[in-house]
Nucleic acid binder design. Structure first.
Lengths: 100, 100
DNA sequence: CGAACTGTTCGTCAACTTACGAACAGTCGT
DNA sequence: ACGACTGTTCGTAAGTTGACGAACAGTTCG
């Protein structure tokens, strides 16, 4: 029950933007952009596990990330291709802006 | 008491993204991008005046728009220069994506 | 098997968001 | 001065968000 990732065509700009409009999620996206596919636990900050699970869901539902189980871990990765296809240049400019 | 617009340097990516992460505000931004500076009332949809006032505030506080009084109207305009300076390419890709 | 580990689910909670109408405050034209 | 007009302020209300801990579920390894 990894939950439903939206199809590429179902990804909505407003959902992506509001998903990214949160400092913690922005950091997560940044980490995924830098580090490629990685497990949930790696990006652990000072927030609780259940809080992170909530943010994975927001990012997943909005179409920003893929989440797939692997052993006892859950691997996360950016849906770069899909985001670039739907909203060319958006992810790049967001990532560039966080790179400051 | 037109309220405080943030300085260019104070504009935060997360605030801009969450401001844009709303369908109504996205339409407003789109209208401003197309039509240049215009009065609040022009973009009136099916929403009430007080609701719009709320959205002007969100857009203003996040640094997405300028709002200035002119006679009995209140003129709105996109802070294109500031947004481009802070987050190059972001506004363009968002606008391009809404242009679909 | 059983302990350790990773992450989810559930219930809860405070804070924020989005929306509305009614009343108000300037401004413009007459 | 008066009415029409534009937008704000205020109070209210329903819904969403972001956070947490406790309990659970699946996987791995001794």
């Amino acid at each position: 029950m990894i939950a439903q990732h939206p199809e590429r065509e179902q990804i909505l700009l407003e959902n992506v933007l509001s998903a990214l409009g949160n400092p913690l999620r922005l950091r997560i996206v940044r980490a995924l952009a830098d580090g490629g596919e990685q497990s949930c636990g790696v990006i652990l900050d000072d927030v609780s596990k259940s809080t992170l699970t909530h943010h994975w869901k927001v990012l997943r539902d909005s179409g920003v990330i893929w989440q797939r189980p692997s052993g006892r871990e859950n691997l996360l990765s950016l849906r770069r291709d899909d985001l670039d296809a739907r909203f060319p240049g958006l992810l790049a400019s967001v990532l560039a802006a966080t790179r400051a």
